[in-house]
Amino acid sequence: MDLQLNEDQLAVADAIDKLAEDFSSSPVDFHGFALVSPELDAALEEGGYFEIAAVPEMGAVSAAASTTRLAQLPYTAEVALSMLVRPHLDIELPRPFGVIENGRPGRFVPQAKTLIIIDGDNVGIAHPQEGDVEALPESLFAYPMGKLVGTPEVKQLDAETAKTVKTWMRVALAAEVAGLMQAALDSTVEHVSVRKQFGRPIGTFQALRHRLAECAVLTGGVRWLALKAAFSGDAGDAALAALHAQDSATRLIYDMHQMSGAMGMTLEMDLHLWTYRMKALLSELGGRGGQSQVVADECFADA
C-alpha cells in the first residue's frame, strides 16, 4: 500500500499544475455557459498527456489525478474521456470524444471526432460527418453540448468492450467530478470568507460552516474512490466511485449555490462553470440508479 504519488506521477502532477496556470482564471468579459479552451486542448495534446494512462510508471492513477486537477479550471476541454477511456481500448479512436446516451444531447458532441453512443446495455462508436450533429449553444450545461441529427454509421461494440468503455467512463466521471466539487467548494469558501452580512463574514455562521465541512468530506471521498477505481480498473470500484460522485455532487451543487446567494446565479461568478458541468454528469450512465445496479451486480455478487 502506498497512497502518495510516485516520482513519475509527481512529475506529471507538477507539469499539469504548470500548464494549468495559464488557464486558471476566466476572462473578465466572459458571460457564457461553457468556457471551452482549444488552447488547453492543444497544450495537453502537445505534451502527450492523453497517453499517460498507458505509460506503466504513471498509469491510470496519474491520468485520473490529472483529470481531477484540470477539472478545477474554469476552462474546459475534452480531457476525461480522452485520458481515461481511450487508452483502455484496443481500437485506435480519434479524439475528442463526445457522448450520446439514450438519444439525449451530450457533452462535446459538436466537436467530437468519436461519439460513444449508449443505448441501454448497448455501446456503439460513431465518427460523425458534417451535418450529423448540431450544437446547442443555449444549453445551461457548461460543456459544449450537441445532439445527433443525422444517422452516422454506428459500430456496435461486443459486450466485453462495452463493459470496458462503461467502466472507464465511470472512472473518468468520478475523477472529473472530484475536481469540479473541489473547485466549486474552493470558490464558495472564498465567497463566504469575504461576503459580510450582520457585520461578519457569512462563513462564520455555523449553519454554513458545517455544510461546507460536510462537502469537504464528500469531496475527499470522491477523490479517493476515483483514484482507487483508476488503479484497479474494476467495474465495481468504478461504479462505486461514480455513484459516490453523483450522489455527493447532487448535494454539493445545491449547497454551494445556496451559500453564494444571488451572486451565484450570475454568469459573472465562475461557480456555474463547475456546477453546470457536474449537473451534466449527474444523469450519465444511468445516474445513481444505474451505478447502484452495477454495484449490486459487481460488489455484492458473492454476498
Binding site: W224, L225, L240
Partner: peptide, 24 residues
C-alpha cells in the same frame, strides 16, 4: 434496497480509503 446498499457501500469505501490515506 439495492440503491441504499450501494450508497452505504460507497460511503464505507470512501471512509476506508480516506482512513488509509491518513495511515499512509
Amino acid at each position: 434496497a439495492i440503491d441504499q446498499a450501494a450508497k452505504a457501500h460507497a460511503a464505507c469505501e470512501a471512509a476506508r480509503w480516506y482512513s488509509y490515506f491518513i495511515i499512509d
